[in-house]
Design a protein around this nucleic acid. Structure first.
Length: 321
DNA sequence: GGCCAGGCTAGCA
DNA sequence: TGCTAGCATGGC
């Protein structure tokens, strides 16, 4: 399944690995989604079907390019990295990339389930091959989610960008492009709210993010434990921290962990999306969303993604057939 | 200028 | 348990 090659490129040796994804996977839909959900860590080269990004492998920042090859029905990603990675580091990076692309998510049973609803059936056609593009680790997933609380996506991306510039590690590729690796827990824990205030973080947002990083550094919170915990255990565990509510943890479990059955019923985007997709007269409240969403188990995360994406498509003025 | 953003806390009944 | 004011700032 994995193929190794060495390619001479200028003075720099590259490792190239091929990663196969479970079909269908639509790179096109991912690119569309990134238009309305910008990721300041990604350099998107649409022409070359390539994403470039700085990863943190262990503690070390590493540049990698992810080139989409193949097709929706035979999806393949070519992962190019620096030659200086050890086999263990290379393996760790590949695991992260598979996670980010939800490489093993089989959409077949999800679509079968969604087709029971005419409104959702339309979305399975329109967004065929759309999957979660996950955060590379749980620390940054939570930080980005806290940043995203109650502000629009564009502003959230700006704030994330500024945090990267303040506390991340800068790298440069052979073409002179600069990339920022997400700040470490330690780097964020060392900050004070006054460092973030000039970047237009609210006082509270600054406190929440720094407190969260400190809780990890001092061992109050152990993110590795989450993988063994049930959804509701994770909610109870993390909402003990100030600034982290149910919505934030639900987003962490969806966008950080890739869990399939979360319903962030308080989410304003989901409320708008439900009204849009199901043609409701009024914007549904949290209780109403839980009532409607009960029928979506065990795929409530995927339903949410497709409903969010309907809002995104309208925002991008995509023609609705 | 007013309303909306992929919320949370604290205070109160 | 359930409701609400206040927070804080950009985008449209």
């Amino acid at each position: 399944m994995l193929r190794w090659e060495k390619i001479e490129e200028g003075a720099m040796l590259l490792h190239s690995t091929v990663i196969s994804l479970v079909p269908p996977y639509s790179f096109e839909r991912l690119l569309r989604r990134l238009e309305t959900h910008p990721d300041p860590q990604l350099f998107v080269d649409t022409e070359a079907s390539t994403l470039r990004r700085a990863f943190r492998v262990g503690t070390r920042p590493v540049l990698a390019s992810l080139q989409f090859a193949g097709s929706t029905e035979e999806p393949v990603i070519r992962l190019n990295t620096e030659a200086t990675l050890s086999p263990a580091e290379q393996q760790l990076l590949e695991k992260t990339v598979r996670h980010m692309f939800s490489a093993d998510q089989d959409l077949t049973p999800v679509y079968e389930h969604m087709r029971q609803s005419p409104e959702m059936a339309v979305l399975t056609e329109r967004f065929r091959g759309l999957r979660f593009f996950l955060d590379s680790d749980l620390f940054q997933s939570m930080v980005k989610t806290i940043i995203g609380q109650q502000i629009n996506l564009a502003f959230a991306a700006s704030l994330t960008q500024r945090l990267l510039e303040l506390a991340g590690d800068m790298m440069e590729d052979t073409d002179g492009r600069t990339f920022m690796a997400f700040p470490t827990e330690e780097a964020v824990a060392r900050l004070e709210p006054d460092d973030l205030r000039p970047l237009q973080f609210s006082q509270r947002k600054a406190e929440y993010i720094i407190d969260y990083a400190r809780a990890i550094v001092n061992g109050t919170i152990d993110l590795d434990r989450l993988w063994q915990m049930e959804d509701e255990e994770i909610v109870a565990y993390l909402t003990s921290l100030r600034g982290i509510g149910r919505w934030t943890v639900e987003c962490l479990m969806m966008f950080g962990m890739g869990r399939p059955d979360l319903l962030p019923a308080a989410d304003i985007g989901l409320r708008n999306g439900l009204q849009l997709v199901f043609g409701l007269a009024d914007k549904p409240d949290e209780k109403e969303i839980r009532r409607i969403g009960a029928a979506w188990t065990p795929w409530r995360s995927l339903y949410s993604l497709y409903i969010w994406e309907a809002v995104g498509a309208v925002r991008r003025k995509e023609v609705w057939e």
